[in-house]
């Protein structure tokens, strides 16, 4: 049976107007997100990220509740009476009290999941465009190379924020409800801005690094090796040099994830003396390293994406 709308779907000359290319960047970002969430193997990592969030969520609730409601009470563990506040001592390192360190620590842990997903997804999101030569499909459309890069960065940035900034904002909201909410939100407004700034920092740095490394090596295995080198080997080397060889703490700058953490805590206006951060470089020094890295990525992308003819 013929559908009455069928004739409307027949190919005919296009008379309408088209949107500017920034819409194409948004479409690319949506496609990237769909690709990330379509891969079933990543859902185990998303589940792990969710578990970290719930751990922080309920632990923060528990710690604050005990502090406020039952700090002086005791419970019996076996035959030994233990103060309730002592039971949550092991959580002290995480600062689960709605302070800047709470959100810094949360993003620190969630960031590991983000890094793993990005290391595995880089080839799918960006590398394949170069490896299989799909770039002509994109660049034969009315978009420029910068719109292509913007689309990819937006997609990856949205993913990073879904995994870090948005859950951190949820924790901030929860922390306010655990205390006297009006004064908490007013007093900690800079923390809210810090969370957003930390998220923006991760978005910019990880997106650029991800696109640049994916354009460079293209395949999943080398990409994982590069990211492992940057984030795991960098950390190991930094620890070895500073803690074993007693080199200057400036050597910790080779640990990119730590650099991001330090800048993030700076944004959150966290107290650097309260969380064993003494043997670290200054945040501004970390900021210089991260800025140089971002500029290097941008210069590489500019050069590489202009050189599409050699690839294809």
């Amino acid at each position: 049976m013929t559908n009455p709308t069928d004739p409307l779907l027949r190919y005919r000359p296009w008379k309408g107007e088209l949107n500017p290319p920034v819409y194409a960047s948004l479409a690319m970002a949506r496609s990237s997100l769909r690709l990330l969430f379509r891969r079933k193997v990543f859902w185990a990592l998303y589940a792990l990220a969710l578990m970290i969030f719930f751990f922080f969520f309920y632990a923060q609730y528990l710690v604050v509740w005990i502090q406020q409601q039952a700090a002086s009470q005791t419970v019996s563990v076996g035959a030994v009476p233990v103060r309730l506040s002592e039971l949550t001592k092991f959580l002290d390192k995480l600062n689960l009290n709605g302070s800047p360190h709470t959100f810094g620590n949360f993003i620190w842990f969630e960031g590991h999941i983000v890094m793993i997903v990005l290391a595995f997804a880089g080839a799918v999101l960006v590398g394949n465009d170069f490896h299989h030569g799909s770039l002509p499909f994109y660049l034969s459309k009315p978009i420029g190379r910068r719109h292509y890069v913007l689309g990819k960065l937006l997609g990856i940035g949205a993913f990073i924020n879904l995994m870090t900034t948005i859950p951190a904002l949820a924790l901030f909201l929860q922390a306010g409800l655990l205390y006297e909410w009006k004064s908490y939100y007013v007093d900690n407004f800079p923390v809210l801005l810090g969370i957003l700034a930390y998220g923006l920092l991760l978005t910019v740095v990880l997106s650029l690094l991800m696109v640049a490394t994916s354009v460079w090596v293209r395949r999943t295995v080398p990409l994982i090796m590069i990211w492992s080198g940057v984030f795991i080997l960098g950390r190991t080397v930094a620890n070895f040099l500073v803690e074993v060889q007693n080199f200057s703490p400036l050597w910790r700058l080779v640990d990119l994830w730590n650099d991001l953490y330090l800048i993030g805590l700076w944004f959150l206006q966290a107290d650097f003396g309260s969380n064993n951060l003494g043997s670290n470089p200054e945040p501004w020094q970390a900021a210089i390293v991260v800025t140089v890295l971002c500029l290097a990525c941008l210069l590489y992308l500019r050069k590489r994406i202009q050189a599409v003819e050699i690839v294809s």
Partner: peptide
């Protein structure tokens, strides 16, 4: 060279969005 996970319809729709429709 396509995104092999996409269907033909999804691919064409994605390209339509890149065109600015």
């Amino acid at each position: 060279a396509f995104y092999e996970d996409m269907s033909g319809r999804e691919f064409v729709r994605a390209m339509a969005k890149l065109n600015g429709f």
